[in-house]
């Protein structure tokens, strides 16, 4: 997989293998399996009762965060469907438009928060420990690192 900035201020992801597609498809499920529906409550856990956050804000945040995941899932699915179904090569392109940058960043953040919460990699995880991880945790760590790299590119090239 290669990721590069576009002239329009977005990013282009060149998908080269079936595994690349799997990783991109996994963003929304990673977030959802980690309980992303609980994220608004976690973010506002320290708000006092007077704010009526549960009734007024959390439902809006839930819808907003779900929208981020839908955007990413739909974009990946649409990019996949553009490919020739008869072709043996899995190659394709996923475009992150400039105006969608924040939604992508948010979806990737949800996925990373969920993976971190589930596997507790820690903030200063060293790659040398990777071999000692059980397979699911190792796989999750690699995805988390990829999501973080993509976020860095979004931050550098797309987000204003």
């Amino acid at each position: 997989m290669r990721v590069m900035p576009t002239l329009e201020g977005g990013l282009r992801i060149d998908v080269e293998t079936a595994t690349d597609w799997l990783v991109l498809e996994q963003i929304a499920p990673d977030a959802l399996q980690g309980g992303s529906e609980k994220l608004p409550s976690r973010l506002s856990a320290l708000m006092d009762d007077e704010s009526e956050w549960d009734e007024m804000v959390i439902p809006e945040l839930k819808e907003f965060f779900n929208g981020q995941l839908r955007k990413v899932a739909d974009t990946v699915q649409a990019a996949q469907s553009k490919g020739d179904p008869e072709a043996e090569s899995p190659e394709g392109e996923v475009f992150i438009e400039r105006e969608d940058g924040l939604e992508w960043y948010g979806a990737l953040n949800q996925a990373r928060l969920a993976l971190e919460s589930r596997y507790q990699f820690g903030p200063a995880q060293e790659v040398s420990e990777l071999e000692a991880f059980p397979a699911p945790k190792r796989s999750a760590f690699i995805r988390s690192q990829f999501y973080c790299a993509l976020q860095s590119l979004l931050l550098e090239h797309v987000l204003e």
Binding site: L43, S44, L46, S51, L61
Partner: peptide, 17 residues
């Protein structure tokens, strides 16, 4: 302050008053 807290949380930062 509530408005700002809501905005910060929409950016996925944990905020409180």
């Amino acid at each position: 302050a509530e408005l700002y807290a809501q905005q910060l949380q929409s950016y996925q930062l944990q905020a409180s008053l």
